[in-house]
Design a protein around this nucleic acid. Structure first.
Length: 270
DNA sequence: AAATTCTCCTGAAGGC
DNA sequence: TGCCTTCAGGAGAATT
């Protein structure tokens, strides 16, 4: 599923191909995504040039002069740039036809979103109160420690709270907590400052490494091949419940934490 | 205010 | 082989 690294990979794939191009028309085949695709998208954007493609958390922001196009990939969304788009298949919900290529949104589960930020995405209610960027300068252990003060929610849920820090989904939260030696179920307010420093470093390292690996999907970005299961081979705990810890050999435990599948090593993580 | 539960959707996986 | 059930999951909304 698209996490921050895959969204960033998508951004890096789309930007050089489409920035500066003119959006000629939009075809919405399925308007009912997470929220209905606003008609204003089709009304305001065609005829305008795409200025930049940016990212805020897991939201992609396509900046046009009149307004920003906001795209979220949800769980199963993907974007492709197609020079010569084949006929749309069942889950190809929206096409953005630019002068040289078409940006096509595919999203089988329809948890994704296409929205309009008018005039700018930052003002949109969904983005206005987001937490800090995990790879930005404001995210560090001290920040986490201060935000966690008094919180009794599990540290994993805390780390996945977009009002705290954006873009850390289930996979990376699980992996970063393992790397930092912190048990996911521990109350957020019961984690020491020094351990939050390790956690913040682990989040950054994990995301950066995944973005690097995600770069391999860049190369075949505009062809129609499915994307590879990047990063999967280097996962220490996610999806490995019942298997043995690669660090100490203990059997990995699992439970649901905040409605999310969670795996940890009972020996390495306290 | 904070924490928990519910909700959207479809494909994959498991059970029989 | 096939049908039915369960589950996964991002994250806002609703509820406690």
């Amino acid at each position: 599923m698209p996490e921050l690294p895959e969204v960033e990979t998508t951004r890096r794939g789309v930007a050089p191909l489409l920035a500066g191009r003119t959006l000629e028309r939009i075809e919405v085949r399925q308007r009912q995504l997470r929220w209905p695709v606003p008609k204003a998208v089709e009304r305001l954007l065609p005829g305008h040039r795409l200025q930049t493609v940016e990212r805020r958390g897991k939201y992609l922001l396509l900046r046009f002069e009149p307004a920003d196009l906001i795209i979220h990939l949800g769980m199963s969304g993907s974007l492709r740039v197609l020079k010569d788009p084949p006929p749309a298949s069942k889950h190809d919900h929206v096409d953005f036809a630019f002068d040289r290529a078409t940006l096509r949104l595919r999203d089988p589960r329809r948890f994704g979103a296409v929205l309009l930020g008018a005039p700018r995405a930052e003002a949109h209610p969904l983005l206005a109160h987001l937490g800090v960027e995990p790879l930005g300068p404001d995210f560090d252990g001290d920040y986490l420690f201060e935000r966690a003060a008094g919180r009794r929610v599990a540290v994993k849920s805390f780390l996945m709270d977009a009002k705290v820090v954006v873009g850390v989904g289930n996979i990376y939260a699980s992996e970063a907590l393992f790397a930092a030696g912190i048990r996911p179920t521990r109350a957020a307010g019961q984690v020491a400052r020094v351990r939050y420093r390790r956690l913040a470093d682990a989040v950054k390292a994990t995301l950066r490494r995944a973005i690097e690996v995600g770069g391999t999907t860049l190369r075949d970005f505009s062809d129609s091949a499915g994307r590879p299961g990047y990063f999967a081979q280097s996962l220490a705990v996610y999806g490995r419940a019942g298997e043995l810890c690669r660090a100490c050999g203990s059997r990995l435990r699992d439970a649901r934490v905040g409605q999310r599948a969670t795996v940890w090593c009972p020996r390495c993580q306290r």
